[in-house]
Design a protein around this nucleic acid. Structure first.
Lengths: 225, 225
DNA sequence: GCATGAATATGAAAATTCTGGTGGTAGAGG
DNA sequence: CCTCTACCACCAGAATTTTCATATTCATGC
């Protein structure tokens, strides 16, 4: 899941970036509206987060430009609790959601999940290498063989599959799978990676969970297999 | 948690009521703005859900009235994807959140949870009879004695304590504790009620979990104890 | 009152998840 | 090259949760 943050206040932008990355999103930041628009129009993002108040092109104008290019990317608008005019303009700009500053991270994450879900990014199986994960039954399939995953194993595997080769830190996996307010520890991830490796091997999958010291885990197809 | 739904379309109103009740809220419905305002001003609700489009007093007007009485009850406004004027009016009416129809139940429940949480309905212990549940540690205390609850036991106990003597069906408990999209079965509730009864007895609590055949469970103080 | 069936309670095993510990390994710094 | 340390893999046991089977209770009609 790729998110573009367009925000000129560097401090906020960077803390958003780190919060979102901690929650397993891939994040890019543009520090002004013009750059933001340019990036956004690449059409590679799953969500845009736009600050309204920016020098030059403001959030509404960016949103309008993006919509005029017929991009349906969901837009989350960050507004200050401000005057009416600002907000009137927003109503027609094509934003999907408004979050009034200050907001806390729970609210933001809830919004993002709602928007991404509403977007209907619905698939029923994730495929990688010679292996696929059936999202309705939680069964991992490779050729003739298959194995059922437990709930937790499923969540971890799904998250890895959604991120393909992109590296995920243990902290990221913890916050997305166990929840950002749980008190699970990194060893949980290590243990479940162990479970998954065993199950992947048991069905002869060529998918490997690689670990990169200090950086986390990611998937890889093992060609020698 | 008491919710007031103000909605003139009877069909929608009733389906909201049933959805919310299934999720453990106590729900009252007013079928027009005037009645809605009257109810709302009782100040007994934890959340108001107002439809914008209603004959007579519309949602915005109700919201404004309620706010003018200095009631801080969070307001969730249901809007149709409609014209600008409607929404401009809403901006100042004091609503906390807008949900555009059609919405699905996940969205609605997510909103509600966010609003209730934001409201900071934070307490750190729930007390009933001679017994209290420490919400930070999950320890159930009665006099000198205490016992730690597991995560699941804690969730069930908290939900029961929040509802006091009000009866909760097994389905309700399932949807609130296990999640409305889990596939847990009613026996889970029975098993956990069993666990909790044992723990309550072990600390000499006078709190009883009564079961009412076909209707569910609720708490009661056992005076003979 | 008694038989019946549905609902609830309970016990015990199975499955899953969590916990803490041990040992191995890669990489940094000497 | 060696040591040291942080990090990772793995194991075994504990705790929790789920599952299933069986027992008990209760309302109801007969």
């Amino acid at each position: 899941m790729k998110i573009l943050v367009v925000e000129d206040e560097k401090l906020l932008a960077d803390s958003l970036k780190s919060l979102l990355e901690k929650n397993g999103f891939e994040v890019e930041v543009a520090y002004d509206g013009e750059t933001g628009e340019e990036y956004a129009e690449l059409g590679v993002y799953d969500l845009l987060i736009l600050d309204v108040m920016m020098p030059g092109l403001n959030g509404y104008q960016v949103a309008r430009q993006v919509r005029s290019k017929h991009l349906a990317t969901p837009i989350l608008m960050l507004t200050a609790k401000s005057g009416l005019e600002d907000r009137i303009e927003g109503l027609n700009s094509g934003a999907d959601y408004y979050l009034t500053k200050p907001f806390n991270s729970r609210e933001l994450l809830a919004c993002i999940n709602a928007l991404l879900r509403r977007q209907g990014n619905q698939v029923d199986e994730l495929v990688y290498g010679n292996t696929s994960l059936d999202l309705s039954s939680g069964i991992l399939v490779c050729g003739e063989k298959s194995v059922r995953l437990s709930a937790r194993e499923f969540d971890v595997m799904r998250f890895l599959l959604q991120s393909k080769e992109r590296n995920l830190s243990k902290e990221t996996i913890l916050s997305r799978v166990w929840g950002y307010d749980s008190n699970a520890v990194e060893n949980h991830v290590e243990v479940y990676v162990g479970f998954l490796r065993k199950k992947l091997k048991s069905i002869g999958s060529n998918v490997k969970i690689e670990s990169i010291r200090r950086l986390g885990y990611h998937l890889e197809v093992d060609e020698t297999c």
